[in-house]
């Protein structure tokens, strides 16, 4: 029993380090890139330009129709065959961003379409350009609608970063694996990892609640 407590204590710090060094940056950077990509993809989907629509559809279809792990393997183990070598961390960022971009684009598209047409017209009549309408009128309202589903996307992403261990990113789960390989306390180490993921996701849901309250200041309840 004492041995277990010792192991738990000594592995705690490396796990936290890996979380701060890799798991969180990987999640946050990928989510930001992914969101930008998602907004562009959503706009392409609702644009009247056929070719934009097609590109967006094909992209979303490929990402949704293939496993995330396979995408990561192609980026990291596959591309070197074509002479393109990407380090583990950037490869993971690319993979996760592409993933978030595709899934979140559907959320954002639905949110944009849920904003009444009258809002676009009001923006038009005061002389706004397309980008001004989006930035000042449509996206602020769409972000309120899409906050809960996007929070889910972010939570999934945090958990999915554990897959990056398989392309050699030393994120938290990989560190847990490494430690467990030396002392065979699999249940303990993976349990610790699970606990850490849960704490992060729980903290995130608190942030989500606060954001929702902020957004809800302008709707009647």
């Amino acid at each position: 029993m004492e041995r277990l407590v010792d192991i738990a204590q000594s592995s705690f710090l490396p796990l936290i380090e890996a979380t701060i060094q890799f798991t969180l940056p990987l999640s946050i950077i990928s989510f930001i890139f992914g969101l930008v990509l998602a907004i562009l993809t959503a706009l392409a989907r609702i644009s009247t330009v056929k070719i934009f629509q097609i590109i967006a559809r094909v992209y979303v279809s490929i990402i949704r129709g293939t496993p995330l792990l396979v995408q990561l393997f192609i980026l990291f183990y596959g591309l070197p065959t074509l002479g393109i070598t990407i380090d583990p961390f950037p490869a993971a960022v690319i993979g996760f961003s592409l993933n978030v971009g595709a899934y979140a684009s559907e959320v954002i598209r639905a949110a944009i379409l849920s904003i009444p047409k009258g809002q676009w017209e009001a923006a038009d009549t005061i002389g706004m350009s397309y980008t001004q309408s989006l930035r000042r009128v449509i996206l602020p309202q769409a972000s309120r609608v899409s906050l809960p589903p996007l929070s889910n996307t972010f939570i999934s992403l945090i958990k999915d970063t554990s897959l990056a261990s398989l392309i050699l990113v030393t994120e938290m789960f990989r560190v847990a694996q490494q430690i467990a390989a030396t002392n065979y306390e699999f249940l303990l180490l993976y349990g610790q990892a699970a606990l850490l993921y849960w704490v992060i996701c729980f903290a995130l849901s608190l942030v989500q609640g606060r954001l929702e309250n902020r957004f809800d200041r302008y709707v009647s309840r």
Binding site: G118, M128, Q132, Y218
Partner: peptide, 27 residues
């Protein structure tokens, strides 16, 4: 400038912000 049947105010802005929006963002 147009006044709409269903007002079409920007719900995420106060009355003041609604009125200021055109002058600030557009003009």
């Amino acid at each position: 400038a147009m006044v709409f049947q269903h007002y079409n105010l920007f719900p995420h802005m106060t009355a003041l912000e609604n009125v200021m929006e055109g002058p600030i963002t557009v003009q």
